[in-house]
Design a binder for these strands. Structure first.
Lengths: 224, 224
DNA sequence: GTTTGTATGAGTGGATACAAAAATCCAATG
DNA sequence: CATTGGATTTTTGTATCCACTCATACAAAC
């Protein structure tokens, strides 16, 4: 009955943590769909614990925006409307724009080479399906905003990436291989090389804002 | 023993909600200081419930960044280091900058008049102590970013205001009456009147970034 | 006098038990 | 046949209990 612990659950120090990681990875890969109701008891049985830690995991997921929690009527998987996807990308654009600006001092031959490497890896993973590509794409962005050295900023951006991940998958599955993406990210690296922080910030903003309409086109009819 | 329900607790529909609001308002007004340990049992007794809902409230406070929660070693009030205050203001600057830009279409004679009114109210509350002034100041900002019509953005900004509120208090208590603040906010309204979204965004960014060093000066020696 | 070991107690995490609220079902009524 | 009212079932929310962890204090050894 109980599944063997999935890779994400291995380093959980408490039951709540285990439940949280379990649900997060299930949501990320789209095992639960928006609108699905999550029953504490079911999940608890699945991973061999009582409902209590699962409830607490729900709360964390709710503040991540991955589920919605209403008093006395349980926990449902949160989907994003087209408007909400748009809003999320607006927020991402300014936060990652800020991150790039702050990361500029860290840009040098080494870091730029690493970025080219990540971009190649992303490109090559295009054949291996949406799962792989989306992960590599997030890695690329994460490397950049990671260089900002701002823990809170990094956390917030990561949280946003988590929320939009399922929609990125859907999108990628439709277009099979976003050729434009390669060029987009090349431009980004070019801007980083320029050394002009304000310019890099602007390019990042536009890069992110430009992605939103593409996603909405495919993700919107899927739900709501 | 149990205190009469403070104003913030009136509309709580669950015990968890009541605990959350209770702790939030206690933290906002600085009743607990950074580093203080919060013992579930004590809090539970204070407001007449068991530890369980209090524990769940802790988790929400933790994801708001108001407390820190470590496995098996409880809940401590989170303070911000000077660096963290700075980072928070950096994030605020781009988020509120975005909000202003998006709010521009809503600016008209009515909304601008309302803003002047809020500014006057803030000005006049300067005598009534830091409590009052900080609330009015947040109201002023909230009105602007509220006009953006972006729910998620509004939530994120509000969360940041919550975290820095105690530091704003400390700062205000020291300087008694920030004369420059009046001018700063006048400038802001002026930029809104200009109708130039990009300019308004830039002014808001600078307004917020300019505040951070003032706070750090006074808030930093207080803790850490 | 410093360090290491051990006992004790407070505090945390989780499971079970219990209470309250919603959802569901079914019958009675218009 | 749709609608409403109420009883039953399901699910959520809270309380209590137990097991385990960690911190502190004291004691023994070096």
């Amino acid at each position: 009955m109980a599944l063997s612990p999935s890779p994400a659950d291995l380093k959980a120090s408490t039951a709540e943590e285990e439940a949280y990681l379990h649900l997060q990875s299930a949501l990320r890969c789209g095992r639960y769909k928006p609108g699905d109701r999550l029953i504490p008891e079911e999940i608890a049985n699945e991973i061999g614990m009582s409902r209590m830690p699962v409830r607490e995991a729900f709360r964390r997921l709710a503040s991540d925006g991955l589920v919605t929690l209403r008093p006395n009527r349980g926990c449902v998987v949160a989907g994003l409307t087209a408007d909400e996807i748009c809003e999320t990308f607006e927020i991402r654009s300014v936060l990652e724009g800020l991150a790039v600006r702050l990361a500029m001092p860290q840009m040098n031959a080494d870091t730029l080479e690493e970025l080219e490497l990540l971009l190649d890896r992303m490109e090559r993973s295009g054949q291996s399906g949406s799962n792989e590509w989306v992960s590599r794409h997030q890695e690329f962005h994460a490397y950049i905003y990671g260089l900002s050295g701002r823990p809170k900023l990094i956390r917030q951006i990561s949280a946003l990436h988590l929320v939009i991940e399922p929609y990125m998958r859907i999108w990628f599955d439709f277009v099979t291989k976003p050729l434009s993406a390669r060029q987009e990210h090349e431009n980004l690296i070019e801007a980083l090389k320029s050394g002009d922080a304000a310019h890099a910030e602007a390019v990042m903003r536009e890069h992110i804002l430009g992605t939103a309409p593409l996603l909405i086109e495919y993700a919107s009819p899927a739900r709501r």
